Amino acid sequence: MPDPTMVEYYRRLKKREILWNDDISDATIDIALYIKKWNSEDKGIAPEERKPIKIFINSDGGSVDTVLHIIDMIHLSKTPIYTIGMGRVYSAGGLLLMAGHKRYVFPHTSCLIHDGSSGAIGSIGKMLDNLEFTKELEKRMKEYILSSTRITEEVYDQNYRRDWFLFSEEMIVLGIADEIVTDIDTIL
């Protein structure tokens, strides 16, 4: 007998729905492959006539390089992609939410923006190389957040070095999300 969890997972995929209810890790790269697959299936169909891809997100965050690749795929997608924040969209989960062509959150969704974490071991030279890479990555993350939201550079700089938690209403004001889901039909 098939695993009921997997049956539901594949049923969602047939409806072009992905539920990401975990940390962003190497396993999340599947999202990028599904975006590619569904864009391929839609080739020749006008973008406004394509059935949207929906990514439901409930995540504590995770791998920045993985989420950046998924963000690249979302930005390249001709098929519209809706990101829906559920529960929490922390760190890399919030970055994924920001990438959607349409971005939704529920009334009690919370978001975390912060400076992340890094670590390096090895020789001093390798640690300095890691530091330079991390500085550049931080700069790129700032540019992405500023270009994807209504957060000003001043507000960003005031909050970035702390754990900056936001509730759904604040996410709307700052342009992290476009709409609070108050009618289930919005995301069906």
Rank of each mutant, 00 (worst) to 15 (best):
S59E: 02
M86W: 03
R140C: 10
H75Q: 15
H101L: 07
D22P: 01
I145G: 04
V64L: 14
W38E: 10
I145K: 09
H114G: 09
T79F: 01
K36I: 12
E17M: 12
K36R: 12
R103P: 09
D3V: 10
L33A: 13
S147I: 12
H108W: 13
M98L: 15
H75T: 07
W38L: 05
E153H: 01
G116V: 06
L137N: 13
T66N: 11
E132V: 06
A46R: 12
S40A: 15
T149K: 08
D72G: 10
D42R: 08
G175D: 06
E136M: 12
I55Q: 03
S59N: 01
L76M: 07
R50I: 10
L112W: 09
E132N: 10
S91N: 06
T28E: 03
I53D: 11
I71R: 05
I29W: 09
Y104H: 05
L128F: 07
E17G: 02
V181C: 06
R12F: 08
H114R: 02
I113Q: 06
A32T: 08
E17R: 12
S117P: 00
N39Q: 14
A120P: 06
A46G: 10
E17Y: 02
I180H: 02
F165G: 05
M171K: 04
G94M: 07
L19W: 10
D23C: 13
T152C: 10
A32Y: 10
Y156F: 14
V67Y: 03
V67H: 07
E48N: 04
F167V: 10
P80D: 10
E41Y: 09
G122F: 06
L13I: 14
M1G: 14
Y82R: 02
P47T: 04
I29G: 01
D60H: 12
V181K: 01
W38N: 04
L188A: 14
W38M: 05
L128Q: 09
L174Q: 13
L96G: 01
V181F: 01
Y9H: 11
G100T: 07
G62Y: 00
R88M: 13
H114D: 15
L68P: 00
I74K: 03
R140G: 07
I24Q: 05
K37L: 08
I24K: 04
V67Q: 00
Y90G: 02
R50N: 07
K102F: 04
D23T: 11
H69N: 14
Y9L: 15
E170P: 06
Q158C: 13
A177S: 08
D163W: 13
H108D: 11
D23I: 05
F167A: 13
G100Y: 05
N159F: 11
I45G: 07
L95M: 15
E153F: 08
H114Q: 03
T109Y: 09
E49K: 15
I18Y: 00
S117I: 05
G116T: 01
K126M: 04
Y160I: 15
T83E: 05
M73R: 15
L137A: 05
